[in-house]
């Protein structure tokens, strides 16, 4: 439990990065959300054996890292958390897909290994982009952007509250589990039945809390819309950012740049 605990609180540290100042942080959240979405869509739209054509996409998260002066280590650590899931999604490909695709002398590389590598590369790209988005925009900024972009308000609000109360919920769950641990001896008390009632408790408590929060909101004039004082506005820099990067994605999607570059080299030196 302690591990989940510290992981979640670490999530807060990612969000804390969003309060720094830089050219990237100053962009309108909508610009960053749309650009990141375009990035993710382009990256996943490639054929399953694509590897080299994906490489130029590294430029986007890399540029954001540098411009926003993000601590690389911290983001990479978060990335590592997501990787095991991806690993297990892709690890069976080499068994199912035995078709030889490449040959380096005696070494034959099957389609499965290539698609596995492709999955890994894509997830590193997309997860890094998503983490960078949070670290430069803050979770709230993203929710506001989603709402402004036409996402249903209920959904945006839910996300915002989920994020706010995740910490409270984890604390409550930790307390329940600690209370159980202190009174269960020799592994007794760890049965599924106890766990079930523990979960039930958590649900009931959350429902009650939700009621109290709703009451607190009503007391302060809540009418279905969350109003926040944030300067939002599309400036020239937003347009340049969006058009520039989507142009780059389009170029990388249409032409396989590393391959072109390789051919060019070969022609030059051949």
């Amino acid at each position: 439990m302690a591990r989940i605990d510290s992981t979640i609180f670490d999530l807060g540290s990612l969000d804390a990065l969003a309060y720094r100042r830089s050219g990237i942080h100053a962009l309108d959240p909508r610009t960053k959300v749309v650009t990141t979405a375009l990035f993710v869509l382009t990256v996943v739209s490639f054929d399953k054996y694509t590897l080299s054509a994906l490489l130029p996409f590294v430029l986007f998260p890399l540029a954001l890292f540098v411009r926003a002066e993000l601590p690389v280590g911290q983001i990479l650590k978060k990335l590592l958390l997501a990787l095991p899931f991806v690993f297990f999604i892709g690890i069976f490909n080499p068994w199912f897909d035995q078709r030889p695709l490449l040959e380096f002398g005696p070494l034959t590389i099957t389609g499965g290994w290539v698609s596995f590598a492709s999955i890994l590369l894509r997830s590193v790209l997309t997860v890094t982009a998503a983490l960078t988005l949070i670290a430069t925009t803050s979770f709230t900024g993203i929710c506001m952007a989603l709402e402004k972009l036409g996402c249903p308000r209920v959904f945006a609000l839910q996300l915002m509250f989920l994020y706010r109360y995740l910490f409270v919920l984890v604390e409550e769950a930790t307390r329940l589990i600690r209370a159980r641990a202190l009174r269960s001896f020799h592994g007794r008390g760890h049965s599924l039945r106890v766990f079930g009632s523990l979960l039930g408790q958590l649900l009931l408590r959350s429902l009650e809390r939700a009621q109290r929060i709703h009451l607190a909101m009503q007391c302060r004039g809540f009418d279905g819309e969350i109003r926040m004082r944030r300067p939002l506005g599309i400036h020239l820099r937003d347009v340049v950012f969006l058009l520039g990067w989507s142009g780059w994605f389009a170029v990388c999607r249409t032409w396989n740049l590393p391959q072109l570059l390789g051919t060019l080299f070969l022609e030059l030196f051949a």
Binding site: S138, F139, Y165, R209, R212, I213, L215
Partner: peptide, 8 residues
């Protein structure tokens, strides 16, 4: 915690 529901 019931009353402070906003991000900042």
């Amino acid at each position: 915690d019931d009353q402070l529901f906003m991000p900042t």
